[in-house]
Amino acid sequence: MGHLDGRIALITGAGRGIGEAVARYFAAEGARVVVNDLGVDIDGTGADASVAETVAASIRADGGAAIANTDDVADWDGARRAVASAVDGFGDLHVVVNNAATERNLGLVDMTEADFDSVVGVSLKGTFAVSHWAARFWRERFEAGERVDRSLVNTASGSGLLNPLPTQTNYAAAKAGVAAMTLIHALELGRYGVRVNCSSPSMVRTRLTENVAGMPQPRAEGFDPTAPVTSAPLVAYLATAECGLTGQVLSMRGSTVLVNRNWSKGPHLSKGEELWTVDELAAALPDLSPDDPFQTLAAALDGALGSRLGEEGRAGVRRMVDAALDAAAAGRG
């Protein structure tokens, strides 16, 4: 008996990387899976219908149940069709894993409107659109008298929650928005028996991250903490009918699971019912010891990649950021 026996799941962006690993893991645990993937390049261009079908066919060859879907989740009607494909193909829908994402990494001064809209359209609008149509179906079934556990599992990222990275205005903003939507939708959809949670993988080796400096190569033997499958057990647990969690944003790195608690309140100043002056704030705010974003980034990268940026100070981190921005702009041509 698998943990997902009888569950029907739609997984977006399931043709490669984390989505593929989750789709295969779900099928091995007994779920019937819709493998949604448009088959685009990393930047969202192009399309290849064989990407989704290859994964679905492989799952079927291994004895699982899977169908392919190539609808664009960033398209309103495409998101509706993706949800309908699960209902039409398997008769119901219990789980949605919103995983589809693209990247166009550029600095603010080089990023175009199209660069911003494309990435936000897939990660943020795509999550919203698929969730909307799934929720509409689930509300309909609930009002018809069904009392079945339903689960939405969104996908955020460390870039957006813990360490927003230079060149990722679009991606980080989208992923932070996904985390916020998770909390809102958990509150809104509870009335229909729907739980909403979010997985936030970090330092996972996919085609979006394989060229990141310091990303380890795959391990031939033993546990590989950067393999895409490391995200799958958490997503599977959140998808089980027995899971009671909702409204949680959980970071996953290797075998470490971390509970995120939104933006947390730090030290504060108050004048009671008096209005501050600019001079008073200029004198008082430095005493609160606000975080330096350069040092915060250095600490995050040192921990993830084993670098020693923290020892180089603010100037060293600025040089690294400037070099990354220049390289991204040069790559655009």
Rank of each mutant, 00 (worst) to 15 (best):
R308L: 10
V34C: 12
L93G: 06
K175E: 00
R150Y: 09
S264E: 15
W133G: 06
A239M: 05
E140M: 12
R147M: 03
H268Q: 14
D62M: 06
G247W: 00
G160I: 00
V259F: 11
D279A: 15
P233A: 07
G2C: 00
S151W: 07
D5G: 09
N170Y: 08
A84F: 05
A179Y: 02
N69M: 02
A179L: 04
A324R: 15
L305H: 12
V235E: 04
F116K: 03
S307V: 01
G78E: 06
M111Q: 14
S202F: 04
I11E: 03
A82L: 10
S200M: 13
Q295L: 14
D322M: 03
A172H: 02
A176S: 13
Y171L: 01
V35N: 09
L187H: 11
V122Y: 02
F26A: 09
R332F: 04
E242G: 11
A114E: 15
L234C: 12
A232S: 14
V51W: 04
M320Q: 09
L234D: 12
A23H: 10
P290E: 06
D287Y: 04
D62T: 07
D48L: 09
G316K: 02
G13K: 10
R318Q: 15
L38T: 13
G333L: 13
V278D: 14
S123R: 01
L93Q: 06
S118H: 07
D5V: 09
G158P: 07
A114I: 10
V33D: 12
L208P: 02
E280Y: 08
V196Y: 07
A330Y: 05
G46M: 07
R332M: 07
G272T: 05
W138S: 08
T182Y: 05
F128N: 02
E221I: 10
R314A: 13
L10S: 06
G247I: 06
R104F: 01
T209M: 02
S270F: 00
L10M: 09
V212R: 15
V321C: 13
G177S: 03
Q295C: 03
A300M: 04
V212F: 15
F128R: 11
R314Q: 13
K125D: 02
G177A: 08
R205S: 08
V51H: 05
A174M: 00
A134E: 08
A324H: 12
T230A: 11
H3L: 13
A232T: 08
S307I: 00
G177Y: 05
